[in-house]
Nucleic acid binder design. Sequence first.
DNA 1: TGATTGTTTATAAACAAGCCT
DNA 2: CGAGGCTTGTTTATAAACAAT
Lengths: 663, 663
Amino acid sequence: MKESPRRPLILKRRKLPFPKSEPEVPHDEPDGPRSKDTAALSGSQCFPNNIRIMDHPSLPDTQVVVIPKTADLQSVLGALTAKGKECGPEGPTKFILLSGGSGSLEDWSDTLGMPTSEGESSSGNPLAFSTKREEGIPQRDLKECRVDAKPLVTVKPLSKELDCSPLDDSLTNIQWLGGMTTDGLAPNPGKRDEGKESQESCQQPLQPPRVCEERPGGIKDPQSERPPYSYMAMIQFAINSKKNRKMTLKEIYTWIEDHFTYFRNVAKPGWKNSIRHNLSLHDMFIRETSQDGKISYWTIRPEANRCLTLDQVYKPVVDVTASSSPQTVPVCEQQPMKRVVPELKKAIVPSTTERKIKPLLPRTDSYLVPIQLPLAPSIFLPSAQLPLVSPPQNCSSSAASIQGGGKRVRIAPKVLQRAPLHTDALKKEPLDVALSHEPRPSHHRKDASGSRRKQRLAPPSREEPVLLFPESSLFDSGLASDLSTFQDTQDTDAEPKTDSGSPGREHAFKTPIKSSHPASSTPSKPPAALPEPWRLTPLGKQGQSVLDFSPIRTPRDPALTPQRHSHTPFSFNSTPFKDLPLFSSPRELLASARSPPPARSCSRELQVGGAALANRSLTEGLILDTMNDSLSKILVDISFSGLDDEDLAMGNISWSQFIPELK
Amino acid sequence: MKESPRRPLILKRRKLPFPKSEPEVPHDEPDGPRSKDTAALSGSQCFPNNIRIMDHPSLPDTQVVVIPKTADLQSVLGALTAKGKECGPEGPTKFILLSGGSGSLEDWSDTLGMPTSEGESSSGNPLAFSTKREEGIPQRDLKECRVDAKPLVTVKPLSKELDCSPLDDSLTNIQWLGGMTTDGLAPNPGKRDEGKESQESCQQPLQPPRVCEERPGGIKDPQSERPPYSYMAMIQFAINSKKNRKMTLKEIYTWIEDHFTYFRNVAKPGWKNSIRHNLSLHDMFIRETSQDGKISYWTIRPEANRCLTLDQVYKPVVDVTASSSPQTVPVCEQQPMKRVVPELKKAIVPSTTERKIKPLLPRTDSYLVPIQLPLAPSIFLPSAQLPLVSPPQNCSSSAASIQGGGKRVRIAPKVLQRAPLHTDALKKEPLDVALSHEPRPSHHRKDASGSRRKQRLAPPSREEPVLLFPESSLFDSGLASDLSTFQDTQDTDAEPKTDSGSPGREHAFKTPIKSSHPASSTPSKPPAALPEPWRLTPLGKQGQSVLDFSPIRTPRDPALTPQRHSHTPFSFNSTPFKDLPLFSSPRELLASARSPPPARSCSRELQVGGAALANRSLTEGLILDTMNDSLSKILVDISFSGLDDEDLAMGNISWSQFIPELK
DNA sequence: TGATTGTTTATAAACAAGCCT
DNA sequence: CGAGGCTTGTTTATAAACAAT
Ligand SMILES: [Mg+2]
Ligand SMILES: [Mg+2]
């Protein structure tokens, strides 16, 4: 009964699948955080040569940044963030990130209905990256507010993926991934001790738990390695894989076991407990009951459903640095689960049969929100402006996040509207609408925002970033059909829906998290000698190495928030995403817009202001905001398919080859 | 690195401080749940002789039940619930519980401002107990709905306590308890390893953790025994002890250490982690920042604050069964923490200097909601009608919950209004407004409600039951002063509060939990041989032994819910309490009532319907509903002071002696 | 740098309700 | 059909990883 010395490996909070590969350049910067204005470009967070930056032709305070696949996106974001701070209030505040891909902006809508074609050749994935200010800075003392420039990144996704249609999910993906099905799988070979969910001291010191962490050779067994997704993410994958977006608990179990053999083979039975725990804990998962009341289905709150699916994060394995054979699994590869049918793969796809699962867990400081993408040609900026440190890429998975085949963003951006602030919260942590970028004095700054960290001030059930999808937004092409199809599978319950109007729930959002990557955060836990030999990542380093997913949200239409107008078009997006009501203006909007939220599976723009936003968002992409909110909750694929990784790694690429507009 | 055989004792989920004392009367009831109509009165859930039941003079479908202190309230509730079911739809649906106390109904308002007088002699605590139907029964198939009659209990509290004024809290209680202060305490003697919050495998097999479970002698060290409150409860205690109801994290730490020496002396440092975790996790705790943004204060969402304070659950130690000396701590006593100044105690209080802390953790199936109490004389019913099994009282704490000095209900009842149901939820789990009491067929019942268990369908930030207190309700006597005083300490921020209007948050409540005590619930964990020798409670038994607190809520004023009218006055209270918006009707109410919620510290009736309810609730008490919702969240003291426990235990009492109206 | 404060995720477990054998 | 076992759900407790200051 002695206390366990430390949590068993499997119980330990999941380690980041990506060891910090950024070179630990310690203190090469004599001037501390105080003089950040000068440090931003000279510090360890430099941009490599192959980064291109240009001003946005139409959007104010916006620059377009083109980065290769192999670049450490996190580093880029960090550098951009620092740059935004460095430039001060008048500097660029948003950045459009373009990471690889030969597709022009016009071919976004040409890749519909090709679920069987993975690795579709031309799929440009622009990312809009916009600096963002920390929310909670009261108007009264703007000058003394510490402004953390948060980058906003816009991703221009395929229309089909933005549609968030369930059809592009499991069924199609099943085929796409090689015919894997949720129910037709033969039981996997080795799975010890089924049943007995509770451990009951059933551990034999004889047989150490089959937790496969890091094998001595550095190669992990993809079948036994834990997927890099949170339970919440996996549950979303599972539920969204069903056309009707409902699943029983048992189906969720099965889906996860089928797609992540780790849980079938190596995980302790307690993982099911965790699944149930997550279902109960998170408000985004709601339980419905069949007509006869016999069956309970788990669904995702439509407003909160960003339609995460596994295929959105599933990508062919590409090892840039490792010289292992294509079939060899890279060090950090996550278990591919399903064999990809070879004939289904396109030529562009690397020879690997395996796919990498883009990890959800690592947190970054960015998330995606819709932003209007420029269709006009942009200015090409010299790459030297923002030198980027290319991480060593020790772990292939680190690079995999921004490389790989043509999977792209399908993540539903979350709603942007501000929740009304509650009482004191309104004073204490008001939204900041200005775009000033102060060098953020690290010490004597009187941050009136007072929010040291994000806090969801509980504007009801908003737990996940909500995808705000205007009805006919983004791409009218194939969406309607997908939507209709999906709608058909949905229960057409014409219930009057006496709902909504949830009353006096004010309270605002969480304080946005600033994106400070190189900042050394001291772990609360004393860095005592770690007994785990498999822990290979440097302890002192806590920065994330990749960013390929993040909460997404659409920019609020100014018309929806009459009372609050931001200084700049997108700066008012500083609202943290959690617990955001679908209606931007508190009561005014409710009073005027009494129509119940649309019964959709994926969160979209509400009917209320849908028309206005829909028009606007036809050319909108996704804004990746660094207002971090546990990025494990959203996925963004920014990989390119038009280039091979070597080219990108070498930097011998011309951006014009896949971005004609820039040329 | 082997997995810990089982969680160390201190890590184990807290055991119920009350071992199940009810006699395991197995299967003496041939007819199962099917034939509940006949079983209700003959089964193991019988009422002892000293239970009196009478019809309520004014309320329909209501009976008054008088029970002795020593009675197992849980058993009573279970029996009443069964009775309610047994009687069918036409039977009594609400019960007013009167548990001890010599006070008549008129002396409810005569005990104001006596914080220093614990054990005040005459304080009758009526409880209204009302059967309640399970929510989620669609209208369409009412007949096949399984109706779990949920009792509703009304507690008639003292006005001062109902006032929920912070003044009656820590400052006064400090004095009352013997001058303990939050900040002026000398550090306690033995506290090992301060600091190092994270364990870091710092456990020496040499020294087993100083977890004081059950000592061999059966006597526990009150200083080292863990208090029976959840972290959430203790945080509420702490914050509500401050006049301004704000506390920094450090102050919360200190308060808890000062009032529960367990955390100062024996708890592992990780308890502070848990405190922080709870603060972040629960929406009811919100963080505010000082004007300069330097200090973060933790507060409780006013709507969710039921103003739990330690004194509400702090009561003098009274051991009914144990013959130990008054100073001896009974077996199950919780650590009293603070010496009660002897001279402050009233004569009625047992000679014990120690106080028992009423546990919050054990869950029951009841909670309190306001109900209108009868002032007219009631009918006295023979006690034989509902025989009650008096539990063996093996553990004194089991009895302590319904015995002890004059502490009484101060818990703010929670709001009753229904949250709008969401989409499918409306169909799947509609509120049931009818009062039919079916015998609930155990098998082929087509429970259209479909909600096997409660689910908070996330009508926003409602995390705790909300106390619904009409402004001038209950007792106009001393409340105004208390309130005003309290208000003065509050920050008078006249912020416009652009809040509320939280949009499309429908989703309803949780499924009420039926009160089935004798029902054998199989633990999911296999009942493998338990290695813990200290585990004394019978394993197979899971029923709760006591009930002395529970979520409280006020009945919704019918005027507030125009669209839904219940068949009976209180039956519409079947709404689960979690996540209930303050406004009952979704949009209609919001549109009509735009006034922001009052900036109070304790949740009360909103201005919207406040007037109507205020008038009504002048004679209202609290309804204790068996719609269980983790009763660890609310406290109800139903102890009596007018009788000694022996009288009650012997059953040699006459109800007329403290309830003249009944005579 | 280190400590404090906050936010999340993971696990284990207690316990309830209800299904199923 | 009835008791016990198993499944499903809900909560609380702990530990830990990380973030921000
Ligand atoms: Mg849930
Ligand atoms: Mg909180």
